[in-house]
Computed example of a mutant assay.
Amino acid sequence: MSQQFGIEDLKRILREGAGGGSALEADILDTTFVDLGYDSLALLETGSRIGREYGLEFEDSALVDIDTPRDLVRVVNAHLLGH
């Protein structure tokens, strides 16, 4: 069975890990994490939470160039597919 990671999964994990409130209610796919109020530490924590929940391991460097939720969803799905 193939899992897929979507924006609603990311929003849930962001809320659980770092909060985010009403900023996550809008269409955030192309809004930078900085504009959403998430710093690099929050992004690393988010990657860690995603990894635990989906059974993935990310190198810290895999998350360095991620600027938007769309980028993160793409990276997670690539890992889920084994790429």
Rank of each mutant, 00 (worst) to 15 (best):
D60G: 09
N77W: 00
L14P: 03
D9H: 14
K11S: 01
T32K: 07
D71R: 08
V75I: 15
G47W: 05
E53D: 15
T32P: 08
I28R: 03
F33N: 07
A26Q: 15
V73Y: 00
E45F: 08
L10T: 09
V76Q: 02
S61V: 13
G51N: 05
R12I: 05
Y38K: 09
R49D: 12
R15M: 12
S2R: 13
T32Q: 08
Y54C: 05
L41S: 04
T46W: 02
D9I: 03
L10G: 11
L80F: 00
A62E: 15
L44R: 04
S61A: 14
V75E: 14
E59A: 15
G37L: 04
L72C: 12
G17P: 11
V73R: 04
S2W: 00
I50H: 01
S40R: 01
L81A: 15
D9T: 09
K11Q: 07
E53R: 15
A62K: 07
L43Q: 11
N77V: 01
F33L: 10
L81F: 02
K11P: 00
L36W: 03
E25A: 13
G6M: 00
Y38R: 03
L56I: 09
L56H: 08
F33Y: 11
V76W: 00
D35S: 15
G17Y: 07
F58N: 07
S40T: 05
V34I: 11
L24G: 04
V76P: 04
L80T: 07
I66Y: 00
G19T: 11
P69E: 03
L43I: 14
I7S: 13
Q4R: 15
D39M: 02
G20F: 10
D35F: 06
T31D: 10
G37Q: 05
L43D: 00
G20M: 10
G51V: 04
S61K: 11
R70E: 12
G51Q: 06
G6C: 06
Y54E: 02
D9N: 15
G47C: 05
H79R: 13
Q3W: 01
L41P: 00
S61L: 08
S40K: 02
E57A: 13
E25F: 02
A26L: 11
V73D: 01
G82R: 05
H83E: 13
L14F: 06
I28H: 02
L24I: 12
T46R: 01
D9L: 03
I50M: 04
E45H: 11
Q4P: 04
S61P: 03
L80I: 04
R15S: 14
G55A: 07
S61D: 13
T31F: 06
Y38N: 02
S40D: 01
T32D: 12
N77A: 04
